[in-house]
Amino acid sequence: MEAMAPAVWVKKDLIGIRDLSRGEIEMILDTAPQFLAVSKRASGIKKVPLLQGRLVVNWFHEPSTRTRTSFELAAKRLSADTLSIAASSSSSVKGETLHDTLANIEAMRADIIVLRHGCAGAPHILAAAHASHIINAGDGRHEHPTQALLDVFTMRETLRRQRGNPELGLDGLKVAIIGDIEHSRVARSNIHALTKLGASITLCAPATLLPRGVERLGVAQTTRLCEALADADVIYALRMQLERQSRGLLPSIREYVKLFRVDRDSLRYAPDHAIVMHPGPINRDLELSTEVADGTRSVILQQVTNGVAVRMAIMHLLANSGGARRARESQAS
């Protein structure tokens, strides 16, 4: 028997999917639809007062448009005040430590800190030492938990719609993750989330971009795209991180495109019902052809819409839960 989902959220922070139980993941997924409905209201008033008067700080040490915008919108739709700090314009260039910067942000009474940082573990270290709620918006090659949560939410919604069953979970769902897995925190978080939810995963990439030891996570891997696509319900193409390819892990981009691109030709190997996902931003016609990215199988823009709702659910659970507050107080005493 699966353990019952806890009735009350107790975590102060969201650092990684690896730290979450299946029940906690499901609580986030089950909370998100009501926030999706807020964003779709016919009245146009896409706002609820759940974080009224609270301050959410977006603190980004790496470039991001989609994730930062999504968090900012989520905070605004919960009626929070928002503030953005970009590392390039902050005191980190003057040598201030992360701890000192956060202590100063907290001295201005911030409630939720959304942190993106190039160093794996930065959100974890800050969360342990500070009282505010820390949400990891991507740390190095470690995790990108909110991306994985919006991805599995999108998979679950699509599956439920396809099969006409509003109660379906992801048990037995077959997901093919294709591309630059070695450099991808999105892949890592998705592997944790999908494994905990009972889906089965096949990773597909050139051998140099498959991280060593990944089989320990309980996933299958292949270097043949047609094999990965053969029984996939979900085809998840990763962004080729061109900025991180300086070590010569790829012989040539042209070879990658020929062997691993998700396009009309390779999709012939996939079942008709398979959907195509991508975390964005897309390198058009590199890992994903324009035709497929904009085609009927693509749910890429639904991922973006769902991302706001899932992030609203996460901020609400972290900041409004009596359980999280009590856990914090007992830790302090």
Binding site: A5, P6, A7, V8, W9, M27, D30, T31, H316, L317, A319, N320, S321, G322, G323, A324, R325
Partner: peptide
């Protein structure tokens, strides 16, 4: 932030 018992639902 004074309630919270129902927060998951």
């Amino acid at each position: 932030g004074t309630g919270g018992e129902v927060v998951g639902r």
